[in-house]
């Protein structure tokens, strides 16, 4: 890879020779890649390969053990307003009196102290972002009453309202049916283009994403590979990554990786 001078490392994500682990175990070593503005990257790999931990590293919630990590040209730090993050598990309580609108509002000023009096400007901002993710019709509904897809849209709205340059989505497609997943993907890919935000989307199934993503980051076996789907999800690349023979089968326009547990 080419070593850019320091002044140019202002990409949303810049990693060089990074090693990080979880609970005393190294899960990724020599990780090197960059993500450019407005790029849509799918993060793939088996359980425990470090997908969520990588996101935590970028969020400044954990530190890397070696190498260099830069987010918009700066070291990762907690509460970075340049990053929007939608975590994986959300236990939304039916008994908690919170509306869809309030959930989105957390993304705007949930980290500020003081009671936070309602204002016309705040309301307008929330309305706009709800419109953007097509969630206006259930803006006033209790979050406990919403479906998985509707909640996922709200998560997206909560992230977008802070106007981030980098969006990290941790498994937003789990628990959604095919149509629901397709809607979220279309939404994300459109936002990616219109807002020029870089998106890293962690997923188990690349197929619904194939027509939309620019590149794929594949994590496995302590290593990673990054590139367009047609060069990463191949027998050659994945066999090297997993360090044993892997077969990629294409059928009905979809890719299936055989010989490993994904």
């Amino acid at each position: 890879m080419s070593l850019e001078p320091v002044s140019q490392r202002t990409q949303p994500v810049f990693l060089r020779n990074v090693r990080f682990g979880f609970g005393g175990r190294v899960i990724q070593d020599e990780m090197t890649f960059t993500i450019e503005d407005g790029e849509f990257v799918a993060v793939l790999g088996p359980n425990g390969a470090g997908k969520t931990t990588l996101l935590k590293l970028l969020l400044g919630l954990i530190r890397c053990e070696a190498g260099e990590v830069m987010v918009f040209g700066r070291k990762p730090r907690r509460g970075n307003s340049g990053i929007g993050y939608a975590p994986q598990f959300r236990t939304l309580d039916a008994n908690f009196a919170v509306r869809a609108r309030d959930l989105v509002g957390f993304g705007l000023d949930g980290h500020r102290f003081g009671p936070g009096f309602p204002s016309r400007k705040r309301r307008k901002l929330i309305d706009e972002v709800l419109e953007e993710v097509h969630a206006t019709e259930y803006a006033e509904a209790s979050v406990g009453e919403l479906s998985g897809g509707e909640r996922q849209r709200l998560s997206l709205a909560q992230v977008l309202i802070a106007n981030p340059g980098l969006v990290l989505l941790d498994e937003p497609l789990t628990n959604l049916d095919i149509a629901g997943a397709q809607e979220i993907i279309t939404l994300v890919s459109r936002l990616c283009a219109s807002r020029k935000v870089a998106v890293m989307l962690v997923t188990h199934d690349i197929n619904p994403l194939l027509p939309h993503v620019d590149r794929v980051l594949y994590l496995a076996n302590g290593r990673c590979a990054i590139g367009p789907p047609q060069t990463v999800i191949t027998r050659e690349t994945l066999s090297v990554l997993y360090n044993h023979p892997v077969e990629v089968v294409e059928a009905m326009g979809k890719k299936f990786v055989l010989g490993v547990e994904t």
Binding site: L61, R78, A86, P87, F106, D109, G110, H111, G114, P115
Partner: peptide, 23 residues
């Protein structure tokens, strides 16, 4: 509690997202 209202609501509702937001 009123002073802590917004971050407290965020934390009680979604501690993971709140932590990432710097709460």
């Amino acid at each position: 509690v009123l002073f802590l209202f917004r971050p407290l609501l965020f934390v009680m509702f979604d501690p993971i997202a709140a932590e990432a937001k710097g709460v």
